[in-house]
């Protein structure tokens, strides 16, 4: 690892203006979280990769439409309806880092990380299927879990769970 990396690490350990890879940092229960802007999503991932975060293990999203309490975000980050969450791992340092980007409801589009971390292929497709967030630059963004003819995105908060009231039909008459 080069000297610059250590500098970045030192920077991030300062309590005041915590920044890493050009993004505000927050700590969620001892887990380091960076908050890149949606436009800088891919560039941040590239910087992470070059800094030794060699695997993107997980990408998911959260729909904050009905979130009751206040969202704890670092200063300068405006909350949006969707949030794309990515987890990175460094085999060398044996550490994890999480990136959370705000994606607006009006235009749910964010860059795909496919080029930097090709392993996100199906993960991004799942997010697209479940939340309707479009990843630009993904080679084959299509539905993965639901049938291709399905309408709607099930994990959005305004999508009904679809529970059917349970009733007993055709039961023998009571004796």
């Amino acid at each position: 690892m080069s000297d610059e990396t250590e500098e970045v690490a030192e920077e991030s350990s300062e309590p005041e203006a915590e920044m890493a890879y050009g993004c505000p940092v927050s700590w969620s229960l001892d887990q380091k979280v960076i908050h890149p802007a949606a436009e800088a999503w891919k560039a941040t991932a590239a910087a992470l990769y070059l800094d030794g975060w060699n695997m993107c293990v997980d990408i998911t999203a959260v729909d904050y439409l009905t979130f009751a309490s206040n969202r704890q975000l670092p200063a300068g980050i405006a909350p949006e309806r969707y949030e794309v969450v990515a987890n990175f791992i460094s085999h060398e340092r044996r550490e994890r880092i999480r990136a959370r980007a705000q994606v607006s409801a009006a235009d749910p589009v964010i860059d795909s990380l496919y080029e930097v971390f090709p392993g996100v292929d199906t993960l991004e497709r799942e997010v697209f299927d479940m939340f309707g967030i479009t990843f630009t630059g993904h080679p084959d963004l299509s539905r993965i879990l639901m049938p291709e003819t399905w309408e709607g995105h099930p994990l959005r908060k305004d999508f009904a769970t679809g529970a059917i009231p349970v009733q007993f039909k055709g039961a023998p008459p009571a004796r």
Partner: peptide, 29 residues
């Protein structure tokens, strides 16, 4: 060889506008 680019310098790490092709892993596939 867990990490291939172990010794790669990251002079561009501060500026997040790094060119993505440098950080692409596609050539590994």
């Amino acid at each position: 060889t867990i990490i291939e680019n172990e010794n790669e310098t990251i002079d561009a790490a501060e500026s997040v506008d790094v060119v993505a092709s440098e950080a692409s892993q596609l050539h590994k596939l």
